[in-house]
Amino acid sequence: MNMKKIVLGTLCAGCAAIFLTADIKADSEEFVRDEYGLLSTDEVQELNSYGAELYENRQCGVYLRVTNDLAGYTYADDYVENVYVVEELGYGDDHSGILLLVSMEEHDYAITVYGSAYDVFTDPVVDDIEEDLVRYLSSGNWYRAFRTYYEECDRILENYTYHEIEYDTDDFIVIDGPGSEPEPEHRGVDPLPVGIGSLVTSLMICLGLRSKNKTTGVKHSAGSYLEDVRLTKKLDIFTHNTVSRVKVADSSDHNRPSGGVTTSYHSSGFHTHSGKF
């Protein structure tokens, strides 16, 4: 009996220690830092509180960094990963978390996901986050962009935590959860573009069929009557070379929200998306 108490007590103490440690860390974490000054102090504070709340309730670090430039890095991908490592961001032993970095000098952004957060923030999910984010960033709606980022992360983490929903491409796929039957849940398919696409395609097919009723027409070429082509001069002179360099997307990259975006996967455990806004 005594032994049982000791074990229970130890477990409770351990749990409390972990909980308290997490709480203390949550309080001390800087979830949002705006070096460039895009946000007001209140906005920073509000988003920071949101980050702390997620840290506590969802066991995941959701971070935002707004910087003046890439601090000497060529690519935002490298910089965001460096920030994550240097600042020792993330929740728990595996440093699970997601970091959005926005560099204002050349309008770069990068999102990196680390640790078990990648179970939730898979590539298609981050693609979806980017879609809204880039739209607001491009229009200079900074607070809305960052607020949406936090809200999206919150919603995704909530779904994952309570419904054990794993995101895939455009749909939710429910994986086995305790006490509930797997039940597919779909994002609504917008019937309007499907309808318009169907009407346009149908019209093209029908016009194609209709054109079979008209077979007359004036000819503008006489190729069938060309008997001979004799070349009397054939000259090909090289004049100069031009070279162009374009940063390419990873082969696994798709569903990008805007042009010029790349994704890189590192063995270190980072899954990073980046682009311009």
């Binding site: 008997e227 001979d228 004799r230 000259l235 004049t239 162009s244 360099r245 374009v246």
Partner: peptide, 27 residues
């Protein structure tokens, strides 16, 4: 490919073609 970059080299040419073409019985 050079690292993360796709490098396209375009060679430019000045091309000349002269020829004699024969058409027969264009109606």
């Amino acid at each position: 490919r050079e690292g993360d970059y796709s490098v396209t080299t375009t060679s430019h040419f000045q091309v000349a073609r002269n020829g004699i073409l024969t058409f027969e019985k264009v109606p």
